[in-house]
């Protein structure tokens, strides 16, 4: 006969961990297993499997000449969006909105949250209108009427990569902004006062007090957003469709184009599996590089 405590422990396990385990299994583990299985089949546009094959992996590792360019572009896109917006601009927004009065700071943070709160299709439709290459696009209307530009700009053709970085960055910056703001708010205020008394200027305060305190949030945002940028493609698909040509086809969109536009589901699954591997590698590298282990270890001093 098991003891009451033994049963309670089991029941608690099921109640508290059960739902999370089920969700993880059904929505993370099972899809990966299905993906692995599909990647070894010839599943094509009519969703039928006629044979098992490894040829998709042969294509991933050498047969697909487009893949190198796609990966290089993905690297530029992820690094560019992270460096310019998700981390740097998010940090700038957090620093500025915490150094002005609370109401204005809250207002500006609210404004920068709008892109994240709007439905993605609506957000991108606005972008499509802004960068419309004719004289009717918002940007061109401003440039032509206010600044006297003669010919409308066509950023979709001339600067598509910059465009996808900016449109994604405007959304991505808000996540960093929120996390960094709360971290800045968590810094004990007396440190700032003490620094002021010691004669430190604003930049010195940011450099010697704020930034060191943001080390972990910055590390976390960098890894988290890198992974999220690696797999996101919906804004790019809606704005440039991955073009012109393959100019803005990042890896995740490339999978979509192969699997859903050409009906090569088997190859798409192999490409996806490779993306999962890339994602894990990026996460582990980030973990190592930022020494995330230290963040998660138990505190050495227990404050009672």
């Amino acid at each position: 006969m098991k003891s009451r405590a033994w049963w309670r422990q089991r029941v608690n396990f099921v109640i508290f961990l059960g739902p999370a385990i089920l969700l993880t299994v059904f929505f993370f583990v099972v899809p990966v297993l299905i993906d692995i299985a599909v990647s070894f089949t010839d599943l094509g546009r009519s969703l039928r499997v006629t044979r098992f094959t490894t040829e998709h992996y042969e294509r991933v590792f050498g047969g697909d000449r487009r893949l190198t360019d796609v990966m290089a572009l993905t690297f530029i896109y992820v690094l560019g969006t992270l460096a310019l917006f998700n981390v740097t601009f998010g940090l700038v927004l957090a620093l500025i909105t915490t150094s002005i009065d609370k109401v204005s700071g809250g207002f500006f943070r609210g404004v920068w949250l709008l892109p994240r709160m709007s439905p993605s299709v609506l957000y991108i439709l606005l972008w499509v209108w802004v960068v419309n290459p004719s004289q009717y696009g918002l940007l061109n209307q401003i440039l032509m009427t206010v600044f006297g530009l003669e010919q409308p700009l066509d950023l979709l053709t001339t600067a598509p990569i910059a465009l996808i970085i900016i449109s994604n960055g405007f959304i991505g910056a808000s996540m960093g902004m929120i996390i960094f703001t709360s971290a800045i708010r968590g810094i004990p205020e007396h440190l700032f006062h003490a620094a002021r008394v010691d004669g430190a200027g604003s930049l010195a305060i940011v450099w010697y007090i704020t930034l060191p305190a943001l080390r972990w949030p910055i590390s976390f945002i960098t890894i988290y957003q890198a992974l999220s940028l690696l797999v996101s493609f919906e804004y790019i698909l809606l704005l440039t469709k991955g073009g012109p040509f393959y100019d803005t086809t990042v890896y995740a969109l490339y999978i979509y184009r192969r699997a859903f536009q050409s009906g090569q589901y088997g190859y798409g699954a192999a490409l996806s599996l490779f993306l999962i591997v890339i994602g894990i590698a990026v996460a582990l590298l980030g973990w190592r590089f930022f020494d995330m282990k230290r963040l998660l270890q138990n505190p050495r001093i227990e404050v009672q």
């Binding site: 419309n132 290459p133 004719s134 009717y136 066509d154 979709l156 053709t157 440039t240 012109p244």
Partner: peptide
């Protein structure tokens, strides 16, 4: 036009 493929049908 170099951007014919990114133009709108309506336009």
């Amino acid at each position: 036009p170099a951007n014919n493929t990114s133009m709108d049908w309506d336009a």
